[in-house]
Design a protein around this nucleic acid. Structure first.
Length: 297
DNA sequence: AGGTGGACCCGAACGC
DNA sequence: TGCGTTCGGGTCCACC
């Protein structure tokens, strides 16, 4: 499920090869992709547009054109985007769109579950559209413990629910939320507004570290996700808790547990992500030095 | 108003 | 072996 690290990996691979290229021919095979707008209308609109940049906001891929328009692509669950020589890939039933660029190469868009969408927005529509849906970028300098604390202050929901809410900040999904909470030593069910300043500080660092780890390994390929050149990510090999029920926590040795939060499968360490009060004292007694614990985050 | 759960999708995993 | 059922997960939306 593409989250920020996966979308960022796709963006960084596509940007150098797409920038300056023109959409020569656009074929959309699935009307759901552009619903409620007619796919032929969207395809016609896109043909002739020249790409100025390939950006990202949260989990949205943002293809910017020289005209000032943008193509917004949230990959949701099962999208993969490949950049290939012309007609290089075998046709498969989940191919939803193909763009032929003016250098003859193809951008092939695949989506098994059809949750992904394409939306063309005018220059003045982009920011309002995004602002209504997502908060700030967690890897930006402006994402500080103070900022995060503000976003969590009035929220009684479990901290994991708050992390999955894209308006808290943009880009967390189910995998990296669990990973960040493990790194911060915070139980996923902890009410967000009960985090102490120190907890929020650790969580801020943990969020950045978890996302950066994902980017460094080109994302996590659990099933459908692939980089634009067709390779798998490597992050799935180094996840600390996600999908690891019963395996020993690498920090305290307790078997990783699984529960359900906000309707999502949720993995955590019952040993070092305690829900009860007094957890901070117990946790710090497990680790000799504070600086060492921070370095693991 | 904040929070929760169903709908949308469809392959994989599971159960009988 | 084969079939029906359940699961999962990002986002929107109805409902509490």
């Amino acid at each position: 499920m593409p989250e920020l690290p996966e979308v960022e990996t796709v963006r960084s691979r596509l940007a150098p090869v797409l920038s300056g290229r023109r959409f020569d021919r656009v074929e959309i095979f699935d009307p759901r992709l552009t619903r409620p707008i007619d796919p032929v209308e969207v395809a016609t609109e896109l043909e002739g547009e020249r790409i100025s940049d390939v950006g990202r906001r949260g989990k949205y891929l943002v293809v910017g054109f020289e005209s000032g328009r943008s193509l917004l692509i949230p990959p949701r669950m099962t999208v993969s985007i490949r950049h290939t020589p012309p007609d290089a890939l075998a046709v498969d039933p989940y191919r939803r769109a193909v763009v032929r660029l003016d250098d003859g190469s193809d951008v092939v868009y695949r989506d098994v579950r059809r949750f992904g969408t394409w939306l063309v927005v005018e220059p003045d529509e982009l920011e309002p559209y995004l602002a209504a849906r997502i908060g700030g970028e967690p890897l930006a300098r402006a994402f500080t413990p103070r900022r995060l604390a503000e976003r969590l202050r009035n929220r009684r929901a479990p901290i994991k629910s708050a992390l999955l809410d894209q308006r808290t900040f943009a880009g967390m999904g189910n995998i990296y939320a669990d990973e960040a909470l493990w790194r911060a030593g915070i139980h996923p069910l902890r009410p967000a507004n009960t985090l102490a300043a120190e907890d929020v500080e650790r969580l801020t660092r943990a969020v950045k570290a978890a996302l950066r780890a994902g980017i460094a390994r080109h994302g996590a390929t659990l099933r459908d996700y692939a980089t634009p050149d067709g390779r798998r990510g490597r992050m799935q090999h180094t996840l600390k808790v996600y999908g690891r029920s019963g395996e020993p926590c690498e920090r305290c040795g307790a078997p990783i547990g699984k529960t359900r939060v906000a309707g999502r499968g949720t993995w955590y360490c019952p040993g070092c992500q305690r829900l009860d009060v007094g957890q901070a004292a117990r946790r710090s007694s497990r680790r000799p030095s504070r600086s060492r614990r921070q370095s693991s985050v």
